[in-house]
């Protein structure tokens, strides 16, 4: 554990709670892509199956359970409890376009040809692109509410901070995980456009609007 990794995890937890709290307190899932949330739930379920056979630390276990339960709760709120407020008409990104390539990539790049390792690789690749339905939705509606922007900023920062953590671990421990690093860089690049808009608009008190 190092400071970058810890800050990354804090940012990740913050993102998850910002989203849950926003939906719960406004009693609305407007502007949130249910498809992205389903993809994140698949990511956590596929990656954290090792909960059943590998124990790393209490911290690790608690965080895994937290991400699984929070993402399931988010999906439940969007598709069941506040279904009437969910903006399905604008949430039209075809998730098979990210599911199938992630699965194919997992079969090509993995650390061993076992079910759990393939699921782990798949989850890493899928996580990198799981936000695309949400970004697509923001582009389609042309704007995002400020809390949605804060959520996206925290979620994007998490992987960017992990990149610093990987650089640090490479120099201090010689640890290098090429699958996570490559996917993590792609994931962070996907947020760059949004980071720019966030800094130039949302932080200056304006609403995030995308030009058509």
């Amino acid at each position: 554990m190092n400071l970058f990794r810890l800050m990354g995890d804090v940012s990740h937890v913050l993102a998850v709670f910002i989203l849950l709290a926003k939906i719960w307190r406004t009693r609305s899932a407007a502007g949130i892509s249910g498809r992205s949330q389903i993809l994140f739930t698949i990511v956590y379920l596929a990656r954290y199956m090792d909960l059943f056979f590998s124990f790393i630390s209490l911290y690790n276990t608690v965080m895994k359970l937290l991400f699984i339960s929070a993402s399931c709760a988010t999906v439940y709120l969007i598709y069941f409890k506040f279904r009437a407020t969910y903006d399905g008409n604008h949430d039209t990104f075809r998730i098979e376009f990210v599911l199938v390539p992630s699965l194919l990539l997992a079969f090509i790049f993995h650390y061993s040809m076992s079910f759990f390792e393939l699921a782990w690789s798949f989850s890493i690749f899928l996580e990198a692109v799981a936000i695309l339905p949400q970004l697509f939705m923001v582009t389609k509606t042309g704007e995002a509410e400020n809390i949605t922007s804060h959520y996206l900023f925290a979620l994007g920062s998490y992987r960017a901070l992990y990149i610093l953590n990987w650089i640090y671990r490479y120099y201090t421990e010689g640890h290098f995980d090429p699958i996570a690093v490559c996917a993590g860089i792609v994931q962070t690049i996907l947020y760059c456009d949004f980071f720019y808009l966030y800094v130039t608009k949302v932080l200056q008190g304006r609403k995030l609007q995308v030009l058509p």
Binding site: D9, H12, D50, Y111, S112, W120, N165, F176
Partner: peptide
Amino acid sequence: AIDPAAHDEL
């Protein structure tokens, strides 16, 4: 090198 069983990150 990576030990496949040691995914210690989230």
